[in-house]
Amino acid sequence: MFKVKDIINGCKKGDRKCQKELYDHYAPFMLSVSRRYTKSIGEAEDVVQDSFIKIFKSLDTFRGDTNLDFWIRRIVINTALNSQRSKLYLFPMVDVEDVKLYTDEKFTLKDFHLEDLYKMIQELPTGCQVIFNLYAVEGYSHKEVAEMLEISEGTSKSQYSRAKLLLKEKIEKEKKINYEFIASR
C-alpha cells in the first residue's frame, strides 16, 4: 500500500527504497505528462529523470497541505518547459491569424488510441505543442500561459488556434485513413 506520508518522510531522509517506491508510483503518470511536451519518448524520459531529481531535492520544502499529485505535475511541467524553452526561443512564435474553429458537438477522441494522440501532439510545432498542452489539457488560461512562457496573450491565442487547426486536420486525416481501412476489409 502506498502511504504518502511515510514515503515522503523516507524520501526526505534519502531512503533509496522510499525513493524507488515514489518513482514506481508516479513515473508512469509523469511520463504521460512529459510526453505531451516533448517530441520523443527519450526526451520525455529525460524530463522525468530531471523531475525526480528535483522532487527528491525539494521534498523538504513540500508542504503537506498541497496535493502531491498536483505538486509533482507542476514540477514535470516546469521541467518540460525549461527543456523546451531553448527551442521556443530558437523558433520564436509569431502571431498567426486567429481562426475561429467551431467544433462539431459530436467531436470525440474516443476512437483514437492514446499513442495516436501523443503522436499528433508531438508532431505539432514546439510552440503550438506547448501552448496546446497548457491551455487545452492542463486548463490554464491564455493569460497564464502568456506569463509562463513570457509571450503575449495574443500570441498564446493565435498559436493555440494554429495548434487546434493542425490537430483537427490530423484527426480528420486519421479518421479518413481508418474509414478507408475499415471499408477495404
Binding site: K54, K57, S58, L59, D60, T61, F62, R63, T66, F70, W71, I72, R74, I75, N78
Partner: peptide, 8 residues
Amino acid sequence: QSLAYAGT
C-alpha cells in the same frame, strides 16, 4: 527550492 515552491 524555488521550483518546489513554484509547484506548491
